[in-house]
Simulated scan of single mutants.
Amino acid sequence: MAPIADLIGPPDGSGEPPPLPASRWPDPAFDARLFARAGGRLCGVDEVGRGPWAGPVVTAAVVLDRDHIPDGLADSKLVSPAERERLFAEIIATADVAIGMASVERIDRTDIRKATLWAMARAVAGLAERPTLAVFDGRDVPPGLSCAGEALIDGDMLSQSIAAASIVAKVARDRLMSALSESFPDYGFERHKGYGTAAHQAALARFGITPHHRRSFAPIRKLL
């Protein structure tokens, strides 16, 4: 297989990769080239939740049905909550989807990078059928894959498959954190999703940490 960089285009001579497309929506032609290159099932993989102080990292692997690609696929950060929910429902209904999750305990026992890569590999392994090629948003390919894998920086801006995975992972994690808030209503998990907002810091100062906080993260470690 030729490197994915060949599908994007060469650097401009400055040593930097080419600029991202002006549109927030990935170009369908890019995934078409990936599909042709894979010669089979193309899987997009992304994660949500590396930065929060609480909750798991959630990853998703998505093999889109090329005849039923939802309109408006984009990086989950650029899509409204209502639009994410719509896209999530369409992706689940038409694609082969699997989710991987790295617990707070795993994050604290290893580190956030290793835990994320482990969860990504779990998501790929959970698909109904093994993909031919898995493309990952970011710089890393997890070890132990049963298929070829390549990393794609800013992949959720370039690939519809990775954008779909980012939406699935985001909605799944947001729902999990909202459910968690029912057991810990004082922390506002349903609003900040575990990120280090001022409201979250204030709740920690008043109520202390929960079993769902990442003790290996510096702001939480200081409270111990």
Results as ranks from 00 to 15, higher is better:
153 I>S: 06
24 R>D: 03
121 A>K: 13
137 D>Q: 01
152 L>V: 12
171 V>C: 11
97 V>T: 05
12 D>P: 11
85 E>K: 09
203 A>C: 01
211 P>Y: 13
70 P>A: 02
143 P>A: 12
184 F>P: 01
146 S>N: 12
127 L>T: 11
157 M>G: 15
134 A>H: 04
72 G>D: 04
164 A>P: 13
93 A>L: 04
146 S>A: 15
216 S>P: 08
100 G>Q: 07
7 L>I: 14
163 A>W: 05
61 A>L: 00
43 C>D: 06
108 D>V: 06
187 Y>D: 13
98 A>V: 10
140 D>Q: 10
219 P>C: 11
108 D>P: 11
45 V>A: 03
67 D>S: 09
167 I>G: 03
76 S>Y: 08
61 A>D: 02
70 P>K: 00
81 P>F: 12
53 W>S: 04
114 K>N: 02
122 R>P: 05
123 A>W: 05
218 A>H: 10
215 R>M: 14
84 R>L: 10
87 L>H: 03
150 E>F: 00
181 S>E: 15
129 E>V: 13
140 D>W: 10
221 R>D: 09
224 L>D: 08
46 D>E: 00
5 A>F: 09
188 G>F: 03
84 R>P: 07
51 G>P: 09
82 A>F: 01
105 E>G: 04
30 F>Y: 14
200 H>L: 03
41 R>N: 00
106 R>A: 12
46 D>P: 07
179 A>Y: 08
210 T>R: 05
208 G>W: 08
166 S>V: 07
58 V>T: 14
146 S>D: 10
76 S>Q: 02
207 F>L: 11
50 R>T: 13
24 R>M: 09
201 Q>C: 02
64 L>Y: 10
15 G>I: 03
6 D>Q: 14
199 A>D: 15
197 T>A: 07
177 M>T: 11
120 M>P: 02
205 A>F: 00
82 A>G: 15
3 P>N: 10
150 E>N: 09
6 D>N: 14
126 G>T: 08
112 I>D: 01
53 W>F: 12
125 A>G: 15
112 I>A: 01
206 R>K: 14
223 L>P: 01
29 A>N: 04
8 I>H: 04
120 M>N: 07
77 K>N: 14
170 K>I: 11
27 D>Y: 05
126 G>D: 13
159 S>C: 10
150 E>D: 09
